[in-house]
């Protein structure tokens, strides 16, 4: 009304002296209304575009967690706050309260501890990464993530790329944890003309016999993440000792096994997972189309190759493929 009256008064030159303070007041009110309305209008057009993301890191001192957090932040154009569960962010109760009262629009959980805390206490959507075997976690409708393991077809394609003469690869697995994975991997191996031979291990004590049955039948052994096969550190040491005695190269799923004797380790590339998590967080916040399965596979691989062992086992290496290797160990 004030604005209308002012505009009406504007038509009368005789009211000029009275009009000026009214005009000023009306302008101030209009500006105030505009200041209040514009952000509301913008937020309706792009929901939560100015939202904050809370990064919940299980332990920022762990190098791979720090690397993925850096990659995430460098690729996200949204303000972030962070809490480090191992870095003096307060007692467990204080952390829970922090999460419950957080005004963040999305939580990015790095590692299992962070994810479990977030899934129990936060109402916001969650994006996770760096969780081993994410399928064993409780997943809500508002949970998205980047798996920690490459789809089996990726390492198998890279085995074929690096070692084109490989024909058979053996895998030790437990039915409890990896029955479905093996069925899928056998199909993926056939796509790259590799025969994948699985050998069941029902209990850790069966490892020596299972190895004795498998090794003579294969060109190489592929070590997968299986808590029955790798029950203890000694299980891993025994596995490498017997494989080496049989002159069979071992391909592993983690760089740590290169120190124990693996010829090759193929893992998911950590910075790439951070980039993917950032894109996924943006998609969720901006209401863009997200993948129906909610959890993406890692898009990048990291390859470590031990050249000395390639020569020791006499396996033919496609030297043209060296450009795909991230780390060569002599």
């Amino acid at each position: 009304m004030e604005t209308t009256r002012t505009l009406a008064a504007n038509s009368s030159s005789t009211a000029r002296a009275r009009r000026t303070p009214r005009l000023r007041r009306a302008t101030a009110i209009a500006l105030w209304l505009l200041a209040w309305l514009v952000p509301w209008t913008v937020s309706c057009a792009a929901p939560a575009s100015n939202a904050k993301v809370l990064i919940l890191n299980s332990n920022g001192a762990v190098k791979k967690y720090a690397t993925i957090e850096n990659a995430f932040q460098s690729n996200l154009a949204i303000p972030t706050a962070r809490l480090d569960l191992a870095g003096g962010s307060g007692s467990p109760d204080a952390l829970k309260e922090n999460l419950k009262s957080s005004d963040a629009a999305l939580i990015y959980a790095i590692g299992s501890n962070a994810y479990q805390l977030a899934s129990r206490n936060a109402k916001q959507p969650i994006v996770f990464s760096s969780i081993l075997n994410w399928r064993r976690q409780r997943m809500g409708d508002n949970v998205y993530g980047i798996a920690n393991e490459l789809p089996s077809g990726m390492p198998l394609s890279l085995f074929r790329y690096l070692f084109p003469e490989l024909k058979t690869i053996g895998v030790l697995y437990s039915e409890t944890f990896n029955k479905e994975w093996l069925a899928e991997a056998v199909g993926a191996a056939a796509d790259v003309r590799i025969e994948l031979i699985g050998e069941k291990v029902a209990a850790p004590s069966e490892l020596p016999q299972a190895l004795a049955r498998l090794l003579p039948r294969v060109d190489a052994l592929w070590l997968i993440s299986d808590p029955v096969v790798l029950a203890t550190e000694n299980s891993a040491i025994e596995l490498f000792r017997r494989s080496d005695a049989g002159k069979k190269p071992v391909f592993a799923y983690d760089d740590v096994f290169v120190d124990l004797g693996a010829v090759l380790a193929i893992t998911a590339d950590i910075p790439t997972m951070g980039i993917q998590a950032a894109k996924l967080a943006e998609d969720v916040l901006m209401g863009r189309e997200t993948p129906p399965e909610h959890v993406q596979n890692p898009a990048g691989s990291h390859i470590t190759l031990h050249m000395g062992r390639v020569q020791r086992y006499g396996i033919h290496l496609n030297r043209q493929a060296l450009g795909a290797v991230n780390r060569v160990v002599e």
């Binding site: 790439t272 980039i275 894109k279 993406q296 596979n297 890692p298 898009a299 990048g300 691989s301």
Partner: peptide, 20 residues
């Protein structure tokens, strides 16, 4: 929207596996 991956072979498989 660019997703930086370490090598070409990753980029190609990222399409096949639905990440890009």
């Amino acid at each position: 929207r660019l997703i930086l991956v370490p090598k070409d072979i990753d980029a190609l498989m990222a399409v096949g596996y639905g990440m890009a």
